[in-house]
C-alpha cells in the first residue's frame, strides 16, 4: 500500500490562480520524498492538501488507502514558521500530540539533542532548537507520515546541516514516510531518495536519488551528484 495516492489533484484559489492542476502522484511507504520547486508553484499547497488543511477543488488524496478528509494525528506536519506553543515548556510541547506516550516523549527529546532542556520555555531556545522541539513532537506522536514544509529555510547552514542529520537518523530509526518540501536543490539531494519537481500545476520531473548515505559534504565533489544538481536546476527553470 502507498503512503499517498494522489489522483487528479486540482487547487484553484480564484479564477486564474491554479497552483495545482490535475496532479497525479504515488508515494510508497517509508520513502523520503523531497518536493522541489520555485516559490509560488504549489509546493506548500500540495503539502497542505496532504495534511488535510486545505480541501482541493478537485481530485482525491488517499493516505494509507483512506481518503484525506481533514488533519489528523496520522499525518504530522513541521511548519516553515515557528508553530510550537510558546506557553508550553519543551517537554510539554513534545508531549502535546494526542498519541504521544511518556516513553516516546523522553526518547525523542534525547534523539533531537534536547536532553537537559526539558523545562526550558521556547523563548529560551534558539531557532534551530525550536525546530528540534517541533520535530520531536511530531515523531513522538507516532504519525504514519511526516510532512515538512521548508522547515529549515530560515536557519543558518551549520544548524541546517545538523538538523538534516537529526531528521535522517529519525527517519532511518522509525521508517516513517517523509514528504519534505524545499526550494533548495542541495538540501533535496542530501535528504531524498526521490525528488519530485512541482511546477505549472503538475509534476515536471520525478527523479530517484540513489547516492549512498550519509551524503552531506561528500556529494559536493561527486560528478553524478553535480550532474543531478545541474539537471534539477535546469528543470526548475
Amino acid at each position: 500500500m502507498n503512503a499517498f495516492e494522489i489522483r487528479g489533484l486540482t487547487v484553484q484559489y480564484q479564477p486564474g490562480i491554479t497552483p495545482l492542476k490535475n496532479l497525479d502522484l504515488d508515494v510508497p511507504n517509508g520513502q523520503f520524498l523531497c518536493v522541489l520547486g520555485p516559490s509560488g508553484q504549489g509546493k506548500s499547497t500540495l503539502l497542505r492538501c496532504l495534511a488535510g488543511l486545505l480541501v482541493p477543488t478537485e481530485g482525491v488524496i488517499r493516505a494509507q488507502g483512506k481518503p484525506v478528509e481533514g488533519p489528523d494525528a496520522s499525518r504530522g506536519m513541521v511548519f516553515q514558521q515557528d508553530a510550537i506553543p510558546g506557553w508550553l515548556r519543551v517537554r510539554d510541547n513534545v508531549a502535546l500530540g494526542s498519541r504521544s506516550t511518556d516513553e516516546q516523549v523522553a526518547h525523542f527529546i534525547r534523539a533531537v539533542g534536547l536532553e537537559g532542556r526539558e523545562k526550558d520555555w521556547p523563548r529560551q531556545l534558539s531557532g534551530g532548537m525550536r525546530k528540534r522541539v517541533a520535530i520531536a513532537a511530531v515523531f513522538a506522536n507516532d504519525p504514519d507520515i511526516l510532512l515538512m514544509d521548508e522547515p529549515f529555510s530560515s536557519l543558518d547552514h551549520l544548524t541546517r546541516t545538523g538538523l538534516h542529520e537529526t531528521v535522517l537518523q529519525l527517519w532511518e530509526e522509525t521508517g516513517k514516510t517523509i514528504v519534505f518540501v524545499t526550494h533548495d536543490v542541495d538540501e533535496a539531494i542530501t535528504l531524498a531518495d526521490r525528488i519530485v519537481i512541482v511546477g505549472r500545476g503538475g509534476v515536471r520531473a520525478d527523479v530517484p536519488v540513489t547516492f549512498p548515505r550519509p551524503r552531506g559534504e561528500n556529494l559536493r565533489m561527486d560528478v553524478d551528484a553535480n550532474l543531478l544538481r545541474a539537471a534539477l536546476l535546469e528543470s526548475l527553470k
Binding site: 488535510g52 488543511l53 504530522g76 508553530a83 506553543p85 500530540g97 517541533a134
Partner: peptide
C-alpha cells in the same frame, strides 16, 4: 499555523 500545528498532532 499554531492551530494547524495542533490539528496535525491530532
Amino acid at each position: 499555523t499554531a492551530e494547524e500545528y495542533a490539528a496535525t498532532l491530532g
